[in-house]
């Protein structure tokens, strides 16, 4: 079970790193159409920042910051954004994910609409990848046993 780390160096470095790491991940997602990266890569970095926080500050701290319900919500929301934009293009008379059709709604020319559509899709991909990545890491690390369950059953392990 992942508990609080008692290593001061790792803890402090993680404490200072994590905000910048998260901002960098959002930068990678948002600038996917200019520079390398995109939704998937940014989502992985965001998930990695969550994993770093989990390793160093423990499960309770992370749960206070980002509850599991919100994580599931983000994951589903990403899929919804992706499929929604695709279906919107389908409804507007183009192919699935044919972004240039969005120019009718957004009121800009086709090239700009394509850029904005890609941005939206990448946002959705990034959220989903972050949530799923973090969930996989968390499930593997705990072996499916949540700290709440352990506490309820009264067999809390010592801090590691």
């Amino acid at each position: 079970m992942i508990g609080k780390s008692d290593d001061i160096i790792i803890k402090t470095i993680a404490r200072i790193f994590v905000p910048f790491l998260q901002l960098y991940a959002l930068y990678v997602i948002m600038h996917g159409h200019y520079s390398p990266g995109g939704g998937f890569q940014g989502g992985v970095i965001l998930g990695a920042s969550m994993a770093l926080l989990l390793i160093t500050h423990g499960y309770d701290e992370l749960k206070r910051r980002l509850p599991e319900g919100v994580l599931l919500l983000l994951g589903s929301l990403g899929v919804l954004i992706y499929a929604g934009i695709g279906l919107l293009c389908l409804i507007l008379g183009g192919n699935y994910l044919d972004y240039s059709q969005l120019s009718v709604i957004l009121g800009v020319d086709a090239a700009h609409a394509r850029s904005l559509g890609i941005l939206g899709v990448e946002l959705g991909v990034g959220f989903t990848v972050m949530a799923i990545m973090y969930s996989i890491f968390f499930d593997i690390s705990t072996g499916g046993i949540l700290p709440e369950d352990q506490r309820r059953e009264g067999r809390v392990e010592g801090e590691r």
Binding site: R15, I16, V18, P19, Q22, L23, L26, M30, R65, L66
Partner: peptide, 14 residues
């Protein structure tokens, strides 16, 4: 927007 989100998530860390 991104800075606001991240600052909200982890303003007590720094």
């Amino acid at each position: 927007i991104c800075s606001l989100i991240v600052a909200y998530l982890s303003h007590d860390l720094l």
